[in-house]
Simulated scan of single mutants.
Amino acid sequence: MSTSLNTAKQSEVLNTAKQSEVLNTVKLYGTSTGNTSLDLALCGKCSLEFSSLSEISGENGVGKTTLALHSIVNCQRTNGVAAFIETEQSIDPAYMKKIGVDMDNVIFSQPTTMDDAFKIAFELIKSGTVNLIVFDSIASMLPKNEVVNGLLTENAALEFSRELAKNLEKIKAMIADSLCSVIFINQLRQNPNTSEWYSVGGKPLERYIDTRIRLKKGKVILSKKDSTVKMGHHVIATVLKNTYGKSGSIATFSVHYQKGINSVLDTLKNAVEHNIITTDDSGYTINHACAKNQSMGNDRAEALNILAQYPKFRTQIDIFTIYEHLRRAKNQLNH
């Protein structure tokens, strides 16, 4: 008879030897985005490749910062050290804590200029102790006196582009062969002549950024009790550029206001699709050497509750899912 994770300690459930084998395989690539669907859209390798620069762009309120914060949470859960450099001057530490960020162990700084922001990052990289650095955001690093009615003058835009290129080139060289990844959150602006949307920063981003992810709002999530109350929205993430894998892949997930991404549902969905967790009339069961035949509950609600109750265990399930995805991809290449 299978036993429920509700009545077993996490350390007793996981097979330590198998866990270490899988962790070592996945950590060859980097750390997770904190969203399994997006990791898998990036060909199973984590989008936050070590020694890489990534960009998360999208319209206001789509969930760019929320996604980056989930990346920090995942970094911390795998015993990594993360830094959040916030030039927007608008983040609420209480919200970061709600998402799951360990505020006692995250490096949090709010510089006001591009130079100061990059200087902090350079010092952190030199220390060799940081695994993830998040910049929020590229657009907010613009000096106020260079902005007129929300638009850069031509000369100011060129100067900003030169400074950004110089700093991106330096930070890319500094993280080469390191165990550090860097995320840049970025806003979109609309070209008044063509109506096309583009990321702030232009050509320097095209040249130096390894992974570019564009977020777009999907359907609104309404309250089941009151259909006039908005609880969140779905997000469509498109991989515009992926130096380490396939570009053009799409992932979807949901953002719940004041709660963040529904990563628990995302974990269960992908684990079932990759046969890490199986489901039948008797409920949900782990079908993996990490905890063979361990019950995940009698129904979907119980399985989700267990994953929510054991966040580090949920991270392990995500890793096993990615590992299985990589294994399947490798087998396809060999046939």
Results as ranks from 00 to 15, higher is better:
Leu179Lys: 10
Ile56Gly: 04
Lys97Gln: 11
Met231Asn: 04
Gln187Met: 06
Ile250Asp: 10
Glu206His: 07
Ala176Asn: 15
Leu152His: 07
Cys75Tyr: 06
Asp281Ala: 12
Asn24Ser: 12
Ser109Asp: 08
Val235Asp: 01
Val239Asp: 12
Leu132Val: 05
Ile250Met: 08
Thr25Val: 14
Thr228Gly: 12
Asn334Lys: 01
His256Trp: 12
Leu67Thr: 10
Phe84Leu: 08
Leu307Ile: 14
Asn167Ala: 13
Leu158Asn: 12
Leu132Thr: 05
Val272Leu: 13
Ile171Pro: 02
Glu154Thr: 07
Asp116His: 15
Ala301Asp: 15
His70Asp: 07
Lys119Thr: 05
Lys225Gln: 04
Thr7Glu: 06
Glu86Thr: 06
Thr228Arg: 06
Glu273Lys: 02
Tyr198Phe: 06
Ser32Pro: 09
Val235Thr: 12
Met96Ile: 05
Ala82Pro: 04
Gln309Ala: 07
Arg162Leu: 04
Gly202Lys: 06
Arg212Leu: 03
Gly100Phe: 01
Ser137Asn: 10
Leu265Pro: 00
Ala329Gly: 08
Ala251Lys: 12
Ile171Trp: 12
Ser137Tyr: 02
Glu55Val: 06
Ser2Tyr: 12
Leu67His: 09
Gly202Ser: 02
Ala139Gly: 09
Ile72Gln: 11
Ile306Pro: 05
Ile322Glu: 11
Leu14Gly: 09
Leu42Asp: 11
Thr7Cys: 12
